[in-house]
Amino acid sequence: MSEQTAVAEQQKTVHLIFTRQDGPDSKPYKEEFHVPYRKNMNVISAMMEIQRNPVNAKGEKVAPIQWESNCLEEVCGACSMVINGKPRQACTALVDKLEQPIRIGPMSTFPVIRDLVVNRGRMFDALKKVKAWIPVDGTHDLGPGPRQSATEQQWRYELSKCMTCGVCLEACPNVNDNSAFIGPFAVGQVTLFNAHPTGSLNKEERTEALISDGGLQQCGNSQNCVQACPKGIPLTTAIATMNREATKHMFKKWLSF
């Protein structure tokens, strides 16, 4: 690398515009930053740069940006935020592939705690509501479960990729303050556990919970979830599968009174 290129590279900066919020009840505001460019930067490393030198574009020293992240390889779902209008993980949002200025804000479908930190608690409540687990606890050994076919395994593997990141809720037009919709991901999880040979022993309970208030029926078929899901989970197929299940469940229930 020649000396000039090195200098040019050093002077290159990344322009970021954040939607910040100091606390859960404070008003959001915009703040701009210019951080020095490095090769292969992602949004997280750009924010770490701000942590090192928390000076905004006006040259004022400010509190560094707050965010959550863990795995840094798009499997934990913690660093979800809205980057250039799209909800996604900050760790896989590469600066080289983003249009500048990069606009970053929290996923406002969730209660904002500070800056980009949101409370995704409602997702875990939703999982509890639809009983997204397989109850196998007992006082004695239940023995091995039934075998699964390779086709079943493949289908369940796709559904099991969910990391509760919240992107599908942010993308869904029917998840908002006016609606009680628990979100597409929960439907995918019910499909996952209902498709498990042991899990299917409790499938009626899950289906029943999934069609209670704020459940499956709130889907309006905009199909944004399947487009937005970073893990490519076939969410709309899961939704339609559960719709079919719910139709059967409904008639079965009515006819067995």
Binding site: A171, P173, N174, S179, G220, N221
Partner: peptide, 18 residues
């Protein structure tokens, strides 16, 4: 009136249909 339309953010065919 309960939907929060977001075609400007997600301009997909199905979202327009929605």
């Amino acid at each position: 009136f309960r939907a929060k339309n977001n075609v400007s953010q997600f301009g997909t065919f199905r979202n327009y249909m929605f």
